[in-house]
Design a binder for these strands. Structure first.
Lengths: 203, 203
DNA sequence: ACCTGAACACCGTTCAAGT
DNA sequence: ACCTGAACACCGTTCAAGT
């Protein structure tokens, strides 16, 4: 077949299929992806920078999917909206989370959203040498709760007797509801503490 | 050679070598591990349950390593010490973090430390239906910052122009120092917000 | 420019054969 | 019981060849 008159592949098409594959729960891989599209693995390399490139593509895609983030507004609204947007996309594609953690972020959309966040925090009055730290915290928070979504139903499985944990687990909501509640509580706490810190800086 | 009079391998020996391999920074794998020990990959299967089995082995090993945590003291000291202990073990074996993340925790040592935390928080005055949420937050925090340690030197790599991010990255400390500072800042923020919340509950 | 197919150096796992 | 070596079905990536 060699080169078809109309291309079989595009970055777009590859990203779509990759997300489909990830969401299907099957293990992600270049070969599996090619099989799913109905093409040879090597074909993909005409459009995309290998396995890592495809993962970055998905990261970017699902950032875009997460929708337009708040452009302006009070800093705490921007923080909350950024975190909720990330939360939404992690919830939509939980199996993607383990793939993207711990890889360098190069996707322009993601970079841009962090850039916007940095600018907002600076303008709100956080000192230069603290903004990056705050962003790292926000990132850790988002990733931690993202993995929480990707985790098995029961995160803690006490085998023997426990003083407190077993009872609380039995009494508390499970699965998504547990995770959602913890997220909202965590967001509250984070915003509280940031407000407190800012007040100290400004006062 | 076939069967030697004295066995070349043992679960112990395999676990040690596996951690060595992980800590060396080379990608973890059964074949690489066998090479490092100086044995055939298939030999390992006489002692250990494949790749996943070896990973579980390491998890158990490095939980024990994390050692005794604070048994009593003010609740905020217990929280801080729990987080710092986790931080230490993540710091000691950062490359292990992505391997074990998102798997159900059954290790008795880890369960016990969370149980102690739950009891402490309850006694401090946090309401029943919030303790598990707080623990989930602490967990997300620990995992998020653990992954931060395992991350590549440059987490964000802006390609083009940025309004703020590029400048801040250039000005800020890098690598472990950046990560440590962010962790300590995050810990401050977390404790602040928990104190605030507790005061509201008690007041 | 864009796809195929062969090739390469890897995986993880199984299993018969040897002692 | 415990190790080897061959074998299998996979990886991810490169590259010449074809249109």
């Amino acid at each position: 077949m060699a080169r078809p008159k109309v291309p079989l592949l595009s970055v777009e098409r590859i990203a779509d299929a990759a997300l489909e594959l990830v969401d299907s729960g099957e293990p992600f891989g270049v070969n599996a992806l090619a099989r799913r599209i109905g093409v040879t693995p090597s074909s993909l390399y005409n459009h995309v920078d290998g396995r890592d490139g495809i993962i970055e593509l998905m990261r970017g895609r699902f950032s875009v999917e997460s929708g337009a983030q708040l452009q302006h507004g009070a800093w705490h609204e921007v923080v909350a909206e950024t975190l909720r947007a990330q939360r939404r996309m992690y919830a939509r594609h939980p199996n993607l989370v383990p793939l993207v953690v711990g890889k360098t972020i190069t996707d322009p959309f993601v970079i841009e959203s962090y850039d916007r966040l940095a600018t907002t925090l600076l303008e709100a009055g956080f000192p230069d040498d603290e903004v990056l730290g705050v962003i790292a915290i926000i990132d850790a928070f988002a990733i931690g709760f993202g993995l929480d979504l990707a985790s098995p139903e029961e995160v803690w499985q006490p085998q023997g007797e426990t003083a407190t944990l077993g009872r609380l687990i039995a009494e508390s909501p499970h699965g998504d509801e547990r995770s959602d509640r913890a997220f909202e509580l965590g967001l509250d706490l984070l915003l509280d503490s940031l407000r407190l810190r800012l007040a100290r800086h400004l006062g």
